[in-house]
């Protein structure tokens, strides 16, 4: 599995630090970032916004048939996380199995390897989530 270098590079702010965006007109937060607010359209005023990385598990599942590049990590947990700023995003939950997680559990973003199975290619890093006990 290979991800293009340009794609990885473009997503570094979003993946490393959870940089999203916010519409200053209606205070809606977007992650991943949007450049146009679908609520306010031309009246919208979009600015970059750094999410705290904290949120709650909205829903989750355990992956047993992973996509290419994630085989060695299976089984792993993917969750939809409701971020505290009020939008949802999808991410892996590390150091946990499905039996450790309940809907509503608090999580925080951590920095992990996403993909690295090509031994001569670049390593792609980014956020995942960890349960807060």
């Amino acid at each position: 599995m290979k991800e293009s270098i340009s794609l990885t590079w473009r997503r570094i702010p979003e993946r490393y630090r959870m940089m999203g965006s916010v519409c200053k007109t209606c205070n809606t937060h977007y992650f991943p970032p949007r450049s146009i607010c679908p609520e306010c359209r031309r009246k919208g005023k979009i600015e970059p916004f750094k999410f705290s990385g904290k949120g709650k598990v909205y829903s989750f599942t355990e992956i047993h048939a992973p996509p290419a590049g994630f085989e060695k990590q299976a089984p792993y947990v993917m969750a939809i996380v409701e971020l505290e700023e009020g939008t949802r995003c999808t991410g892996q939950v590390v150091d946990a199995t499905k039996d450790d997680i309940r809907i509503g559990d608090s999580v925080e973003a951590v920095f992990r390897k996403l993909l690295s199975d090509d031994p001569e290619g670049p390593i792609h890093y980014g956020f995942k989530f960890r349960l807060i006990k």
Partner: peptide, 16 residues
Amino acid sequence: PAIDEDSATMAVESAR
């Protein structure tokens, strides 16, 4: 370390 951890990820954890 977990399968998705290396010196860079752990360095970020401690740095934060």
